[in-house]
Design a binder for these strands. Structure first.
Ligand code: FES
Ligand code: FES
Lengths: 141, 141
DNA sequence: ATAAACCCGACTAAAATAGTCAAGTATCAT
DNA sequence: ATGATACTTGACTATTTTAGTCGGGTTTAT
């Protein structure tokens, strides 16, 4: 079970963005330099974040990205969903009655993975971008 | 974030095994048939489980595998560790002071992923094989 | 003896990941 | 106006991981 860089970068970049958000649009170039993430990769990531209305873009010189909602309203869930990093513990289609390997019934452990998924999503639903920025400021002091 | 089939299979197979454990050694062929998992793949998985002393093997005809500890004492953590499915939320070396991308300091989100890892491991530490077998019997009734 | 089972290592196809690259378009500062 | 800055889009690619397969063993009950 691992978290991919795409998801980690998305959150990292948004925390960075959120810190400067009130002043000016933040360019990906700046985030790239500060966080050490490839600019081209960041562009892919922000394209997804924009489509899911988590950020807004400002084109042209002095442009960049700004948050599209209040940091408090952006949950980890929203960010990870946007970049296709949803938690996935089973491979069977949930809505279908079929099991893992095309069997007629759900397998012995289906229920367990469902519980796990809920457990992890609870964590993601609770944490907002605001929390993360806050944590960060506190730690610095 | 996803769980791989290897991890899912390992747990599935052990739940199956645990149900028959008291009577006779259970052959992988049987597990393979009942659970619809490739026999060759199961062999790889059980080789790891044996090395981590979660199961014991009985060779020869009528052989198979038996649990090496009580079902109550085998936690999900132990199973997933054995098959190299540990939770991994960061890519930076934890013990080192260095950050994600070789930076001198830990990144903005390091602490968050640490929390997440703990959160998930709590779940894995709590659930024992016995719990899973029990859940299963209850559901059948 | 022979068949059932475990044991071991090497191999591989397919998918996912973590990017790179090229060619745009919009907008601001001067 | 014109350049520079920055977003936009889509295609491409190397590497790694996953989910197996395959071929040959060795052990042991019957
Ligand atoms: S995990 Fe859903 S049927 Fe196995
Ligand atoms: S996750 Fe550890 S430094 Fe980024």
């Amino acid at each position: 079970m691992k978290l991919t860089s795409k998801g980690r970068y998305a959150v990292m970049a948004l925390v960075d963005l959120a810190k400067f958000n009130d002043i000016n649009p933040v360019s990906l170039r700046d985030i790239s330099l500060r966080q050490g993430i490839s600019l081209d990769y960041l562009e892919q990531i922000f394209s997804k974040l924009r489509k899911k209305e988590i950020v807004q873009s400002v084109r042209g010189t002095q442009g960049g990205y700004v948050l599209n909602k209040k940091a408090k309203e952006i949950k980890l869930t929203n960010i990870l969903d946007a970049v296709d990093e949803k938690v996935k513990t089973v491979q069977c289609k949930k809505e279908l009655k079929k099991g893992c390997n095309g069997k007629a019934t759900k397998c012995l452990t289906h229920n367990l993975w469902d519980e796990l998924e809920t457990h992890i999503n609870n964590f993601f639903d609770k944490k907002s971008l605001e929390d993360l920025v806050q944590d960060n400021i506190e730690r610095r002091v």
